[in-house]
Design a protein around this nucleic acid. Structure first.
Length: 299
DNA sequence: CACATTTGACCCTA
DNA sequence: TAGGGTCAAATGTG
């Protein structure tokens, strides 16, 4: 009873923090678009505003990190159970399988985040296609993938890939759930590159649920314009204490990234740092697994 | 033969 | 009730 109230209050807090961060991001985008104009009128406005924005974003991010640090595994388990228990029950009871075919919870109640790219990228995980659907008002069918290790490891990660336009090609990948499997592949490579001249874009879906940064991406801490880094993380499991995410050379000064994610395999300690003004986020998280850091559920 | 993909059916949610 | 997510038999591939 008491825990439920606490959990509810915590959810509200996270909700508000996420909202605040999202609003700050929107403000940042506005600043980016109108930065030149502002500079013309007042040269000092933009840098100062950007500085304030960074501070706000860091505050939100730090708060979210600390909040999630307290209940990581618990919330993660609850989230997965809630979103996919219907599927679980189906696999456990074959007698129900044939009667309850197609029983599932819709994506809305689970963690999702999206990534748009001009090319298909290998995100370091093995995916198995399990469906394809024609979606209303779309030219191209949507492809459904689940983790190859779903059966043997119970990995519940799924993704949907949909081509949204032909020329230039644009693919929208929606990740749902996060990987619980430990078998990871080669670093992220471009699978289909017709026009790799532009950065892929990535954004979060905030509809009714908190998107969870996962191994594919870490939208929680990265700029919306930076590609995913999942397999970089996987390589880290063997090579401890490496930086895994770096901003592209062309990145603007007001973008900030998770520039340092340091793992100490022996102690299972993780240190996060950002590129922002050389600040460290100041988060030191003991006793958690390395990939849990990027899988913090926010609800 | 084992595993992946295709594709129509099934069924939940809005 | 339509749309969309998943299942699973059929089929393809190495």
């Amino acid at each position: 009873m008491e825990n439920e109230n606490l959990g509810h209050g915590r959810g509200k807090v996270i909700d508000e923090l996420l909202r605040g961060r999202e609003l700050a991001n929107q403000l940042r985008n506005i600043l980016n678009e109108s930065g030149g104009d502002i500079d013309d009128n007042n040269g000092s406005t933009t840098p100062f505003a950007e500085h304030l924005l960074k501070e706000v974003l860091v505050t939100f991010t730090n708060s979210l990190l600390f909040l999630n640090n307290t209940q990581t595994s618990e919330a993660s388990d609850m989230q997965l159970t809630k979103s996919e228990d219907s599927l679980e029950s189906k696999y456990k009871s074959t007698s129900i399988v044939k009667e309850r075919r197609g029983c599932y919870k819709r994506r809305k109640v689970s963690q999702t985040w999206e990534k748009e790219s001009e090319y298909l990228v290998e995100d370091g995980h093995q995916w198995r296609k399990y469906g394809q659907k024609t979606i209303l008002n779309t030219k191209f069918p949507r492809n459904y993938y689940r983790c190859t290790h779903k059966v043997e490891q119970g990995c519940k990660a799924t993704k949907q890939v949909q081509k949204v336009q032909e020329d230039p090609p644009l693919y929208k990948t929606t990740y749902c759930g996060h990987h619980t499997c430990r078998i990871l592949q080669s670093p992220e490579i471009i699978v289909d590159s017709l026009s790799p001249s532009h950065q892929s874009s990535m954004f979060l879906s905030f509809d009714n649920s908190f998107p969870t940064p996962a191994k594919q991406d870490c939208p929680f801490l990265t700029s919306p314009s930076y590609p995913s880094t999942s397999s970089s993380i996987s390589s880290l499991q063997k090579e401890c204490k490496q930086e895994i995410v770096h901003p592209p050379p062309s990145s603007s000064a007001n973008d900030y990234y998770l520039s340092g994610l340091t793992f100490d395999d022996s102690e299972k300690d993780v240190t996060l740092s950002s590129t922002l003004d050389s600040h460290q986020l100041g988060v030191h998280i003991p006793d958690i697994l390395y990939d849990d850091v990027l899988n913090w559920p926010l609800s």
